Simulated assay, not measured.
Amino acid sequence: MKKNSKRNNKLRVCDIVLNSVDAEKENKESQNNFVELLPLEVTFKIFSQLDIQSLCRASVTCRSWNHTIRNSDSLWKPHCLTVRAVCRREIDNDLENGYSWRVILVRNYQKSKVKYEWLSGRYSNICSPVSLPEKIMCPMDADTWGEILQAELER
C-alpha cells in the first residue's frame, strides 16, 4: 500500500512539474507574440508594411496572427487596389456582393495577373488558342477582353 502511494505521489509531482513547464512555455509564447501585447493600431501599422506574400506568410505563423490578418480589411484593401490591372468594375461588383477585401484580392489576383501580362504584350506573339498556356488562363468578361484587344490593336 505504501509503495502505491509513493508511486502516486511521484506521478503527481511529475504532473505538477510538467504542468508548470507547460504553463511557463505558454507564458513565454504569449510574451513573444507582439500581436497580443501591442495596441491594435500598432499591430496593424506593422502588418500594413508587409507585401502580399509576406502578409500571407505571417498569417500562417500562429493562430492569433492569422485571426488578426485574416479579419482585417484595412490590411487587404490597399493590396487589392494596387494589384496591377485589376478592373475597378470587378472590385466594385465584388464589394456590392458583400465580399471582404481579402476575398476580393483572392478572387481577382490571378485574373489581374493574366490581364496585366496580356496588356503588357506578353501574349502578343501567340497565333492560335492552342499556343495559350492553359494553367494560367482564367475566364474574363467582355469589357476586359475589349481592353486587351484595344491594347493589341495599338501595338
Rank of each mutant, 00 (worst) to 15 (best):
T82K: 06
K3D: 04
L132A: 04
Q150Y: 08
S5G: 06
I136M: 11
N66L: 01
L18H: 10
T43S: 12
C14F: 14
L105Q: 02
Y116W: 05
P133N: 13
A151N: 08
K45Y: 07
I52G: 01
R7A: 15
C14V: 08
C127H: 12
L81T: 05
R12H: 13
R63A: 12
S100T: 15
N19H: 06
R12W: 10
N71P: 03
N108K: 09
D143G: 09
S131C: 14
K111F: 01
V114T: 08
E90G: 07
R63N: 12
N108V: 04
P129D: 09
S48N: 13
P39S: 10
S30G: 04
N19P: 03
V35F: 04
S5N: 13
C87F: 03
L119A: 05
M140Q: 04
C127W: 09
S100E: 10
N4L: 11
S64H: 06
V17G: 10
E29H: 05
R102K: 13
I16N: 08
L149G: 02
S30E: 07
I52C: 05
C14T: 14
R102M: 15
D73R: 02
C62W: 00
V21I: 05
C138L: 07
P129N: 12
I136S: 03
M1H: 02
P139E: 14
E96C: 07
V83P: 02
S5F: 07
Y123F: 14
E96K: 13
L132D: 02
R107W: 05
K28H: 06
K113V: 11
Q150R: 11
T43A: 13
V21M: 05
I91K: 03
E41R: 14
C127K: 15
A151C: 09
K115I: 06
L81D: 03
R70H: 15
F44N: 01
N108A: 00
D141C: 10
I148K: 01
M140V: 08
P139S: 04
Q49F: 02
V86D: 01
A58Q: 02
R63W: 11
N71V: 09
R70T: 14
S5T: 14
S124A: 15
S48V: 02
R70Q: 15
L81F: 10
L132P: 01
I46Q: 03
E41G: 01
K6N: 15
P133A: 14
S112A: 14
R155M: 08
K135S: 14
C127I: 13
W65N: 00
H67E: 08
R12M: 12
L75F: 09
V103F: 12
I46F: 09
L38N: 08
S131P: 00
L18I: 06
I104N: 04
S112H: 01
Y116S: 05
S120K: 14
E96I: 09
N125K: 15
K113D: 12
N33S: 06
L18S: 13
S128H: 10
